[in-house]
Design a protein around this nucleic acid. Structure first.
Lengths: 344, 344
DNA sequence: TTCAGGAATGAAAACGTTTACATTCGGTTG
DNA sequence: CAACCGAATGTAAACGTTTTCATTCCTGAA
């Protein structure tokens, strides 16, 4: 392995000068700098990160502790984080797919001492967990989770605002009696989405709501759809707390020959890629996931730079209603164009 | 920051003993070990990776250099790599979304000196690039790419075998005149898929093939579908080099009122999540992407452990035909069950 | 001519950990 | 009882880099 000493010998200078030249310090003659750079290139010198970190007390790396995520969501999240990290010259250490809290704890502990900060997103994480496994001295930002009684910065998805915007959209299209298919009990996102719906309906005279149980699975959406068809009075529209349930519900409607959106309108939440390909394409709420990751990393960098005690501020990422055909909007001739409304 | 010295003082032993106790060395009394562990826990001691790496000359981390990947593919790949890495106690450094070769070069260089080995997957990478930016001393495995004249281990997808298996499946269903929608020029996967199709058709008496241009986009599949409908003699079946083109082709057929699979059969390649939700669901070739990542990491670990000069061996990951409704197979009552044939 | 001051470079300490080697201390064996 | 041995623990060097402080050399002013 070739070290800074080898370069120094090759360029006939001291290691200090090599270090200065390679790190862009001002006070080194252009001539010596050139000589050193040539020597380094000739020897294919790569500085050893560990040695550097030891003295600078910076690893130039951030960690991301993520749960078992799938498909587009995971990809986009990492993309957003990675891009922002690279812009700051930071490396990204990823640890995902933790089955339980113990695994997450091991991963979180292993990360510390190797990174300058961590991004945390995990259903297994609560205040007690973090107090136990995350050193106070490590900068951290929580993504889309807000343990009670734990003071750290958060970056969250505006589930409530997104649900409000979608509900307003449904009301604007003239739907008055709207069914809501709920997400799993205890799920924060699901709770917030329901709240946004509830509030907006409550604020509109003449509108009424009904609620069906669900657990985010396609199957639970299918069952909810069946239940709605069997009911005495059908709603004008159905708003599912996520796209998978909306898709299940759509299957139930299609199977029964009930036309969407003519007989009943349908909306989802998440804008998973499939939403664009259902028949009819699904009107839903889009979450800019890459942007979420980006924002979280930027917040982390701020915390890493200013060594102040972290504020427990909350950043909320807006959602957008994506209008497709499933709620009564008529797609234009090409059938591909979409109308995106940013929620206010 | 709390160091090993603090723990030593707290436990009233030397730093050497602390190191031994915490690293599971045999020769330390259970009593002292317990005392040290208590002290470490009390102080919330986390060993500093950099210092450890400096002396052990191991970072316990591997890097993954990835291109601009989307959705399921990226997620699954990382999942496979991450799981395998964690099983070996290795951290995973991810760097993705490189727009051009220069960006990839910067990322690759920055990784070296921070990792014990790298996984590389990039369209920008060729032999010259690697010789220039990758030190010989760094263990590396190439994923789904095989630069000519560069001797490193590879892990590839068996595109050719997958295409052969699918073609055999189509022939077995009685289809004889089969159209193939090609992928982009110069794309290695696309070339291999075509070759697998070509060979299998050639080996079957009475079978004939025709080829249509495409570039992996949904649109190009749509155009190919239109072209096929306009042709004098329609094929019995269409095999698209990827699922997106198959979906585009399906749109063209649906639009023209041509029933799939009754009038014409349709198959894709990749098994993207949407393939399950098209009408009819798409028969396609499934690639176990997580397994690909897993295998690549395992191969890398071997290379890291045995310090021998790396063999330039090639591991090929098998593909599977996933039979859904689009080729004439009738799904059973639930409409959800699938039949998976592992290619031999 | 002398000396101050600044620019370029070198010497050496420091970072936190592991580990080879040294030391201590009981206990066993001759 | 002496000598030795092995187990447990301590001491200190080493890892590769950055950075402080010291040194050298040159320029320009007194």
């Amino acid at each position: 392995m070739v070290t800074i000493k080898d370069v120094a010998r090759e360029a006939k200078v001291s290691v200090a000068t090599v270090s200065r030249a390679l790190n862009g310090s001002a006070d080194v003659t252009p001539a010596t700098r050139a000589r050193i750079e040539r020597a380094a290139a000739r020897l294919r010198y790569v500085p050893m990160g560990a040695a550097r970190s030891l003295v600078t007390r910076r690893t130039q790396a951030v960690g991301a502790l993520l749960p078992d995520l799938f498909g587009e969501f995971f990809s986009e999240l990492i993309r957003g984080i990675d891009l922002a990290a690279r812009a700051h010259g930071l490396h990204l250490l990823v640890s995902s797919s933790h089955g339980d809290a113990d695994e997450a704890a091991v991963a979180l502990r292993a990360m510390q001492g190797r990174v300058d900060g961590v991004l945390i997103m995990s259903p297994h994480v609560d205040a007690a967990f973090l107090r136990k496994h995350l050193a106070d001295s490590v900068p951290a930002v929580l993504l889309d989770s807000a343990p009670r009684g734990y003071r750290r910065p958060h970056v969250n998805i505006d589930n409530e605002g997104g649900a409000r915007a979608m509900t307003r959209h449904l009301l604007a299209l003239g739907h008055r009696h709207i069914a809501f298919i709920e997400g799993p009990e205890g799920n924060r996102d699901a709770r917030e989405r329901r709240r946004g719906f509830e509030q907006t309906i409550a604020g509109k005279g003449g509108a009424s709501a009904c609620y069906l149980g669900g657990d985010y699975s396609e199957d639970s959406g299918f069952r909810a759809g069946r239940a709605l068809l069997a009911a005495r009075k059908r709603p004008d529209a159905v708003f599912a707390a996520n796209d998978m349930m909306a898709i299940g519900c759509l299957s139930a409607f299609n199977e029964a020959g009930v036309r969407v959106p003519d007989e009943i309108a349908l909306a989802g939440f998440d804008d998973i890629p499939i939403a664009r390909y259902t028949h009819p394409p699904l009107t839903t709420v889009h979450v800019r996931i890459a942007q979420l990751g980006h924002a979280a990393l930027e917040r982390l960098v701020v915390q890493m730079q200013t060594l102040e005690t972290p504020e427990a501020d909350v950043t909320t990422m807006p959602c957008e209603v994506v209008v497709r055909a499933s709620c009564g909007f008529r797609a234009n001739a090409t059938g591909r164009q979409e109308d995106i409304h940013t929620q206010t």
